[in-house]
Write a protein that binds this DNA or RNA. Sequence first.
DNA 1: ATAGTCAGTGAGTGAGGAGTCATTATATGA
DNA 2: TCATATAATGACTCCTCACTCACTGACTAT
Lengths: 196, 196
Amino acid sequence: MNKRELQRQQTRATILTAADHIYAAHGFIRPSTQMIAKEAGVAHGTVFLHFQSQEKLILAVIEHLGMALTAQIHEASEPGHSLSDILRTHLDAIEASEALYTHLILDLPQLPEEAQQTVIGIQSVIAHHMDQVIGQLKKEKKIKDLSFSFLFTTWIGLIHYYLMNRRLFAPHGSVLAFYKDQLIANFIKLLEVDCK
Amino acid sequence: MNKRELQRQQTRATILTAADHIYAAHGFIRPSTQMIAKEAGVAHGTVFLHFQSQEKLILAVIEHLGMALTAQIHEASEPGHSLSDILRTHLDAIEASEALYTHLILDLPQLPEEAQQTVIGIQSVIAHHMDQVIGQLKKEKKIKDLSFSFLFTTWIGLIHYYLMNRRLFAPHGSVLAFYKDQLIANFIKLLEVDCK
DNA sequence: ATAGTCAGTGAGTGAGGAGTCATTATATGA
DNA sequence: TCATATAATGACTCCTCACTCACTGACTAT
């Protein structure tokens, strides 16, 4: 490994991290490549030396987020987990990149096709794990007989709603850190068949 | 009423309608004032003759949407409505401006403070009606004992999720037209206390 | 030691967008 | 009828931004 090559890869990583921070703070659309160069402490041109275009840079950041999330979810998933465990794993993973994930969801329609594929990939992973447990609980008649896709979209919709309104729900700090337990408990209560 | 004044108001209305169409199709952020002028069939400068700035124009369009939605919800609301009636009224109102409403939700963080107030206003109206009926059903022990705010955010989250992914759920046409009945039925089933 | 290579630089370019203003065309009021 | 007022115009200005390229200087291979 060259000293030169090492330096090169280090600079690339610096830019990627800077972009990560900037996009997490301001979303993917507003920030300019100038701003990212400044944050990374490199010349404007250097950004384009490492990433062909702004679009490619954005996609690299999103790809990186996707990998981090799916890895974390897989890692924390063990057979025999309860529904509560699965939901908590999901929220823990998102919480670790809460700001960036939220902007990904919000800016998605304005981002290139590849970004949408990444989001679909992330959701497939969590959907798979949820489906396993929910299928079992349905057989045991412990939760309501509603289609999995409806239950899944209800859960994702709820989480995304909290994330999108994070400034409203938790002006300082993480919404999920604040509401995680409550969200999981309430959602499970909603699914349960309860005869008093 | 002057002929001149009439013409003036007509031009203003033309621009507002054009902006409505353009924003519904492309969101509030991307389209240029040039594009709206072209759609309205007026000169670029004319837009600024009627609206001080792009921001004021956007706010006027959003204000107009807010009025339309709240008016429609109030109009269709009668005392003695069932939960299903309330939810349907809500979805009917949104469906009438589905594309514009969806972009309002998506672009909200990038829009001025006033826009957020408008959205809060709309949601207050529907929340008020829902709260009436749900409070009653809770007393009758017909639905689960969960906080109203949780049930409300679950409902809004679900609807917004479908709207935000409308291209996925219903590539051509309205998501709500397609899924309205199913969404209402499933959501009510979720709330119900069902003892078999 | 030295020629060659290449990561990094930053002023420069062209595209596009918001908002302005001198000018034009038309309606109004005396 | 004619002077005045004003709705409308669109070329123009100023600005920001993504991306380029001639150049620099540190590193490498001989």
